[in-house]
Design a protein around this nucleic acid. Structure first.
Lengths: 347, 347
DNA sequence: GTGAAAGCGCTAACAG
DNA sequence: CTGTTAGCGCTTTCAC
């Protein structure tokens, strides 16, 4: 591969001039510029990114930490992130942590601040401490989907009002006449989906019902988790007419459970999820869900991260850390009514 | 961030020694090694990857070119790739081409041979010429899922016997007594799925049927494509008892179409796909399909690529290109019978 | 306008 | 065993 130096020789100028042409800095004579551009074309020169990174003290990549890119929600998000980065001339490195904090830490240690100038964190089960360390080393960190806008973490983040999402979902069921609604929460108790469940409780209370008294099950945030939880819930409470689920994947699982139990959705049982992943529109019946602005969140996260990178000085300069962590809130979730919900059959 | 030099100073040695300790090269005295390790720990030193890359003339990342990471099959593959790379101390850069050769070329131009030492290509609609150029510039390229082991492309690749996959799928339907089988091909005529369709024809012929005369429709390789094709096929040929589909996504779409048309799967209509993506097991009814060794293919691709990188000298040395392109064949596809296929209803 | 020179952080001979 | 010396390819003052 030709180097900038070779280009310089061929064009009869010095490396500095070639560099200037490349980045439109330092006034360069039109004639020289042409000669340089020709030399570049003839040699097929392309800048060596690591060299540039070294000289500039900045890296051309951003890391996205996820527990597993194979989880259907993440790719949609990753795609949006990559699109946004591409526009900014940066590249995306995918870091699968497998939900293991150790793996996550290893990644952060290796690339944050060297190969990657900043880190985007999706629910990847990382130690908060490790993220703080990463920041202190000079690599900005942005949490991509904080669930409680009103209760900011100690890190910059993009927040989505998931409590509202839960509330909207519950309101939808209530408006269809459902009163006996089971809840399936795709996280641990007080876990990441707590805000969504809170929204459910709030909506129930507003309707004069004691949401907290409704049957609820906590389960892994997967199709299988939702399947198992729905089976259990429906067996224990055959009178339920609807299932509120804190995420689409478990909601999809719940629909399968209903199918296997011979319960018609939506005539006998309504099911609602949250997020609106691609699969939601493709399932039969198509899943009613509360859509979350995924693409917007991705774009905001990239924007925020790049801004932090700009203002934090070079990678080598430790971040002051004194700055108040920024919180960007996305636009609100909204209901997407499809075929998995209908009037309560006992209404 | 502390540099190797600072570590050296603190440990009272020269940078070279620290470097040696870091990479276990050049014999270093035990006492010195300890001092150096302490200094590293105290300072929280971590090597600067771009600097290392520059000095070594090699890059720590590998690029994966895909048309869109959001296509449900790719993430599974990407995860396997990343896992394999992680073991080798390398990082994965995701390049979404959106099926646009220009975007692909731009990516290759920017990172192949500089940021990324090698390129993994999934069906990303790239110009073959661009890939050859990339190789010539010294960045090995591996095609990840070549469909015709018997007919190697001009590039190193991991091949999967997709003709056999098609044959197995058709044989399964035939063994269930199906005779009037519609085919849905998820690519253009003579496109990427041609080998799978060939396998179908072969199996039909072996059963004394003229497969080429069976109703066939070419459609985009998506759920929607399969949905539309199935509707059309089933309307034009209401007597079909089974649908052979060249990929899981369109097969899933076909099942939805059947559901919407009120055709029971598998009692009235059998549907089979190819690949065995995660969704296949999660659909209702669960999709019968011919599984392809995805993880194995990913591992072989990584292995092959790294081998090519090793043997191609440094990134800067142009690849001779004279070497015969290697072809690795994965183990064979195999049938995974689930609930979407059953005996022909007219048998 | 263009060139000369220093240096980013690290590795790689080769000396000692 | 450890130190010295050169760069890797690029950017960036600062002279000319």
């Amino acid at each position: 591969m030709p180097t900038l130096n070779e280009v310089a020789v061929r064009a009869g100028v010095t490396p500095a001039t070639v560099s200037n042409v490349l980045r439109n800095k330092g006034r360069v004579g039109e004639a020289t510029r042409q000669r340089v551009l020709e030399a570049i074309a003839e040699l097929g020169y392309r800048p060596h990114l690591p060299a540039r990174a070294l000289a500039e003290g900045r890296a051309p990549t951003i890391a996205l930490m996820v527990s597993s890119i194979a989880n259907p929600f993440y790719p949609e998000f990753a795609l949006a992130v990559e699109n946004a980065l591409q526009r900014k001339g940066r590249f995306l490195i995918i870091c699968n942590t497998a939900g293991d904090p150790q793996t996550g830490r290893a990644y952060l240690d290796q690339i944050a601040g060297t190969l990657s100038e900043g880190v985007l964190v999706m629910n990847a089960n990382l130690d908060f401490e490790d993220l703080r360390m990463t920041e202190l080393r000079g690599a900005p960190v942005v949490l991509c989907m904080w669930e409680r806008p009103a209760d900011p973490p100690g890190l910059p983040c993009v927040a989505v009002d998931f409590r509202l999402a839960g509330e909207l979902a519950a309101q939808h069921l209530l408006s269809l006449g459902h009163r006996r609604i089971g809840a399936i929460v795709g996280s641990k108790v007080y876990g990441i989906h707590a805000a969504r469940y809170d929204g459910f409780i709030d909506a129930m209370r507003a309707a004069g019902l004691d949401g907290a008294a409704s049957p609820v099950l906590y389960t892994p945030d997967t199709t299988q988790g939702g399947y198992a939880a729905a089976r259990e819930l429906l067996k224990a409470h055959p009178d339920l007419t609807a299932l509120f689920t804190t995420n689409d994947l478990p909601a999809l699982g719940a629909m399968q459970a209903a199918a296997d139990l011979g319960l018609d959705v939506p005539n006998r049982l309504s099911v609602i999820g949250i997020t609106d992943i691609q699969l939601a529109r493709e399932s039969r019946p198509a899943l009613t869900t509360v859509a979350v602005p995924t693409v917007e969140a991705a774009e905001l996260a990239v924007e925020l991260l790049l801004e932090l990178i700009e203002t934090s000085g070079t990678t080598r300069t430790a971040n002051a850390g004194a700055r108040v962590s920024r919180v960007c809130v996305t636009s609100s979730p909204y209901l997407v009514a499809r075929a998995s919900t209908g009037p309560a059959h006992d209404a």
